[in-house]
């Protein structure tokens, strides 16, 4: 019986979408119990309700210390949650900071880590991950080998969240004592950009991305307008971020983020291989470019050859009309 522990990422107690997706995956693909680990302020407030996703026990460390120092306090908490739950399989979200926690925990516990799973299958006692590799050119199936814990990173929107209406989860507070080692990297400040509350590019089901064809930084207003009409995230090509037209964390490509949304709309993006390596596994790809020979067109399910400055506003307007 393969019990699974899910690292539930939450925002002041509200589980993120991917958490519910992973809990569903754990229930559907595992054959044992599903437990949850929640760390940080607000963790205790929502732990019980995870029973709705089939969680039996929720291991909680509700403390400001969880985020007062980078990474290492959560390593201690994660190891404690794994020991307390007895689970040998851990699912965690493909999030940069959390993957650092998992990476350090893995070395401490001699566990194997497989990253970026888009599907999971239990084969015997092994949780096998399916992942896209080499910029999406190939698909691989990977697993942890040997008698060790299995840590699997799950990409957003690989599973559909589904409640099953179980009993409230048993909330188990964790005993976490921080030693001096855990306090070596002190969080001094957290700065949030004045964001418009759009989805994150790695979690969004729809992305509208802009490139050099926008002509100037201001061109991103057209991208944002379309993104907002669709409830989408905004992405950017490296040419656009190098030019300073949009923040680097939105860059999609080989040196930036890898995304696989249900719909990707690239405007003014030529689609060089370094960019395609970051998005070509997207389910549906749409491209708008005035250059009929843009490489992105070769992988686009639908392409418009035209001036994006004329096309985009009309598209945004029509979408808004239809939504009313």
């Amino acid at each position: 019986m393969a019990d699974v522990l899910v690292l539930v990422d939450h925002d002041r107690g509200i589980p993120k979408k991917i958490a519910n997706q992973m809990l569903t995956a754990a229930r559907e693909r595992g054959d044992g119990e599903v437990h949850a680990a929640l760390f940080g302020e607000g963790a205790a407030s929502s732990a019980e309700r995870l029973g709705a996703y089939g969680v039996t026990r929720a291991f909680v460390w509700d403390s400001p210390d969880a985020h007062r120092y980078a990474t290492e306090p959560l390593v201690i908490a994660l190891e404690a949650a794994l020991d307390a739950s007895g689970a040998e399989i851990l699912l965690y979200p493909s999030d940069q900071f959390l993957s650092d926690v998992v990476a350090r925990t893995a070395i401490r516990m001699e566990a194997g880590v497989v990253t970026d799973a888009v599907d999971l299958t239990l084969e015997g006692d092994r949780m096998v991950a399916t992942k896209a590799i080499f910029g999406g050119e190939m698909t691989s199936r990977c697993q942890v080998r040997g008698d060790r814990h299995q840590f699997l990173g799950v990409k957003a929107n690989s599973f559909t969240a589904e409640e099953v209406g179980g009993n409230p989860a048993e909330v188990v507070p964790l005993e976490v004592t921080l030693d001096e080692r855990a306090k070596r990297a002190r969080v001094v400040d957290t700065v949030e950009a004045a964001s418009a509350g759009r989805p994150e590019v790695t979690e969004a089901t729809i992305i509208v991305a802009g490139g050099r064809g926008l002509g100037e930084a201001d061109g991103f207003r057209l991208v944002e307008e379309l993104a907002d009409a669709l409830g989408a995230a905004v992405g950017a090509s490296r040419a656009a971020t190098d030019a300073g037209w949009y923040p680097h964390q939105h860059q999609i490509g080989q040196t930036g983020k890898t995304v696989s949304p249900a719909l990707y709309i690239g405007v003014g993006i030529s689609g060089a291989i370094q960019h395609r390596a970051g998005m070509q596994t997207s389910q549906t790809i749409v491209a708008v470019n005035k250059d009929a020979e843009a490489p992105l067109f070769s992988i686009a399910d639908f392409a418009v050859v035209g001036d994006l400055h004329k096309v985009l506003p009309l598209v945004s307007e029509e979408i808004r009309k239809r939504k009313e």
């Binding site: 698909t139 691989s140 070509q280 686009a300 399910d301 050859v305 004329k310 096309v311």
Partner: peptide, 14 residues
């Protein structure tokens, strides 16, 4: 396994 390469779909000229 190799992923089947994406094929180009419809292209419309404005």
């Amino acid at each position: 396994t190799p992923r089947p390469p994406k094929q180009a779909g419809a292209k419309v000229e404005d």
